[in-house]
Design a protein around this nucleic acid. Structure first.
Lengths: 201, 201
DNA sequence: CATGTATATGAACATTGTTCAATATAAAAA
DNA sequence: TTTTTATATTGAACAATGTTCATATACATG
């Protein structure tokens, strides 16, 4: 073999994800090129392809960390002694706060093609499903006798709406809806949704 | 001058947008390259840049047509003798129907960088604002005494939610939420929103 | 020490968007 | 009609992209 870069393949892999994450954080996802990564790590261009099938898989790994962090801030929200609307807004604010403080890594979530077979994607999927649990619990408080399907569907709908609105921003399609307005839009959505569920109780 | 391609610059411009639209419709936005366009039109690569500042401007022009078509199907929805929820769902279904029947052109809406100064963007913005009007009118029926700001904000929120959810699909981020589920999510959002506004009346 | 295997390498390829000096011709002037 | 001027079209060239793969090499094993 040629000179080993790292002690193990796993170590190299981690170092590459670290470097990729740093590049994205500092200069955005578009700065993450095969050559930039190689240069930053002092390795050859081709080495990336010994470890990852394609460049997008590497983005997927960075995104996996980002999603884990989002799960972190969501799960850190205090759930006690709050009205459902307030709790849901607290979740939304935690998410918005993360977006504001981590614009580049967050925007990378919407970059590149996802390989549905990749480990990172499967991981991200189950992480996201766990996130739904928080929303579902909050909604169950709103209408305790609603059936499971309604709760789940509402949670999915609200999450998709929020995530979707924010994705518009990530792609520069937010001209009508700035970040400030996004929070207001989310609040309107949540408030009326909760009011609607309460009314149908 | 060399042999004229068309009688006028405007005619060439139109022919290029036509060709671009055809390419996107048939093979998707990623197939619209400077060389493919030149080849299809039987002109040189550089000619595009005599007419458009950049390739993304051309996409913007095609998108402008797409948005006009969407406005078309929305404005064609019958507004008489319907409950607000039904009318709003009819709008949503009109949109979903367009998306289903025009996947490639529709997905192109989320491709490329938007130049905020471009004519096409300004045009698309005012078109979108007109679209809001339909939603606002439907919402005004729900709570006639709500102030203008609340109506406008609700319309923006609902539109952003729907458009955002669909944008997730365009980018292949819909794994949890298929197109079928998107309709259900929209329905849940609309139903509860209307119920919420009604309750606060 | 010799042999084989694993792995880092980087030149090379195909494609991108984009530029711009050269070219060719329509229109204007003589 | 001939000459000049203005300008629209051209396409080779550039820089940058992701990706591939024969080559070289260093470690592990016999």
């Amino acid at each position: 073999m040629p000179k080993k870069i790292m002690d193990s393949r796993e170590e190299l892999r981690t170092a590459m994800i670290d470097a990729a994450e740093r590049i994205i954080t500092e200069d955005g996802a578009s700065a993450l090129t095969a050559r930039r990564l190689a240069s930053d790590l002092g390795i050859a261009v081709g080495t990336t392809y010994n470890v990852f099938r394609q460049m997008d898989d590497l983005i997927g790994e960075v995104n996996s960390r980002t999603i884990a962090k989002i799960t972190g801030v969501i799960s850190a929200v205090n759930t006690t002694e709050r009205k459902s609307t307030e709790l849901l807004m607290a979740y939304a604010d935690a998410y918005i706060g993360f977006v504001t403080g981590n614009e580049n890594t967050w925007a990378a979530l919407f970059v590149g093609d996802i390989d549905p077979e990749s480990e990172s994607h499967k991981r991200n999927l189950s992480q996201t499903l766990r996130l739904f649990g928080y929303i579902e619990n909050a909604l169950r408080t709103v209408s305790p006798q609603a059936d499971q399907h309604e709760i789940e569907a509402s949670a999915r709908a609200l999450w998709a709406a929020v995530h979707g609105m924010l994705s518009l921003m990530a792609h520069g399609r937010h001209t009508i809806l700035g970040l400030g307005n996004v929070r207001e839009a989310i609040q309107i959505l949540i408030t009326n949704h909760v009011a609607g569920m309460t009314a149908n109780r």
